[in-house]
Computed example of a mutant assay.
Amino acid sequence: MIENQPPVGNAPATSEAASEHDRPSSEPQFVYQGDDQTALQGILDSAFTPHATEVIGRKPLNARFKVVHQGKIQVYDLSYGTDVKILPVRPPAYYAIRIGHAGRAAITHHGRTMPFSPTIVSPGQVLSNTWGADAAARIMCVPRDLVDDAVRGELGDAPTSPVQFENLLDPRVPDIANWLRLATLFSTMIDSGVLDGPSLAAAHFEHLLVHTLLRTTQHELTDALAERRGTAGPAALRRAMAYCEDNAARPISVAQIAEAALVSTRTVHELFRTHLNSTPLAYLRRVRLAGAHADLVAIAEGNAAPRTVAYVAQRWGFPHTGRFSRAYREAYGRFPGETLRPRSTSPNDEGETDIPFPAPA
């Protein structure tokens, strides 16, 4: 018995239906409930990937397939009501994450049997699985482009091939256990109806799930992501910082910094606050003060043409010389005119370039 089947997976849909599908919806919808294997197979092939289903149990098929959440990420509940064996005919083009199950079930990959959940099947992988009559699973399907976008945001470039996650999500690993709790919270909020209806909340939650999955699990980009996090933070922040450094002598705005970082002005503010405990304009001022300091030292050492403090201040975006002098003194402990004086060999002058970049205010 098929009940008002919505467009699922790659199933064709009218433009009106497709528009509905694009909006996150967390209201559960039974797509199929019954014993018609042919009908069920067609629906599941569209929702997941073409696969062969072999009923190996004595009980008749009594399947239940429910759409739990439809957004950029899809969440489904599935059970067969009898023992079955599943073998994909074509590898999936998405990430299938079994975030939980009840009953007897197992996955086999290259002859190795592993727990049914929590596991990830990445695009291109072919895994067979068996379901007991009492098995029921919640499956989260994540499109490859969401993972690619997350990689691009972290590393600056999208991967040339699908990220391959380790299949088993081992809850004994603290970070993975935390991600599973997050996925469970998402699942619980779906069930409670909190995410029902048009809302940005579900979309933000999906974004969080994908980015944290990338950061907490093992895959071929794990080391690169860890290295990036240990240095300058997310790629968007690095782009914003680079733009400030490359354009410090020009009049630039927060909107321009955000545009260069490929994020909103609100996001760029959050990035600087979270990772640098600063603001975009405060960081820009630090860059400008560092540039002015370098110029003054170069002039004092005879490595640059003689210039006045006012000239250097104007060059680095400080139109008011008095304010520049006060900001410079706060950062470097002396007025710019003192730095500009010819260098002597006295001990007090030997540390002139000890602070190449002003500390955050």
Rank of each mutant, 00 (worst) to 15 (best):
307 R>E: 13
96 A>V: 09
7 P>R: 03
354 D>P: 03
137 A>C: 08
206 E>D: 03
345 T>L: 15
251 P>K: 08
172 R>P: 00
154 E>D: 01
294 A>S: 13
311 Y>R: 11
93 A>G: 13
192 S>Q: 14
259 E>C: 05
66 K>L: 02
269 H>T: 05
18 A>L: 15
288 R>H: 10
291 G>E: 09
357 F>G: 10
296 L>A: 06
320 H>N: 10
119 T>P: 00
347 P>T: 05
10 N>R: 15
357 F>D: 09
255 A>W: 04
225 L>F: 07
298 A>I: 01
285 R>F: 00
186 F>Y: 12
307 R>G: 04
160 T>Q: 14
6 P>M: 04
284 L>W: 00
18 A>M: 12
200 L>V: 12
220 E>A: 13
170 D>R: 13
346 S>P: 00
305 A>N: 09
168 L>I: 14
185 L>S: 15
355 I>D: 04
2 I>K: 08
212 T>Y: 07
239 R>A: 07
336 P>A: 07
111 G>F: 07
60 P>Q: 13
118 P>K: 08
183 A>W: 00
41 Q>T: 15
173 V>T: 06
297 V>E: 01
121 V>C: 06
247 N>S: 01
93 A>Y: 11
298 A>P: 01
104 R>M: 12
131 W>M: 14
148 D>E: 14
224 A>S: 09
226 A>E: 07
89 V>E: 12
71 G>E: 06
56 I>H: 13
97 I>S: 06
19 S>I: 04
94 Y>M: 06
323 R>Q: 06
119 T>A: 04
122 S>Q: 00
19 S>Y: 12
92 P>W: 05
142 V>Q: 02
64 R>F: 03
303 N>W: 11
53 T>H: 06
197 G>V: 04
38 T>A: 15
83 D>N: 13
337 G>R: 13
135 A>N: 04
335 F>Q: 05
112 R>W: 03
19 S>C: 10
207 H>T: 05
66 K>E: 06
276 L>I: 03
60 P>G: 10
166 E>H: 13
342 P>M: 06
122 S>H: 00
47 A>Q: 01
35 D>M: 10
344 S>D: 12
45 D>P: 01
256 Q>T: 00
150 A>K: 05
158 A>N: 12
159 P>D: 00
173 V>P: 02
61 L>G: 12
101 H>M: 09
1 M>T: 11
171 P>L: 15
263 V>M: 11
220 E>V: 03
296 L>S: 02
30 F>L: 14
254 V>K: 09
211 H>N: 15
223 D>Q: 14
274 T>V: 00
180 L>I: 14
291 G>C: 06
151 V>L: 10
305 A>V: 06
27 E>P: 02
306 P>N: 11
196 D>N: 15
141 C>N: 07
351 G>A: 05
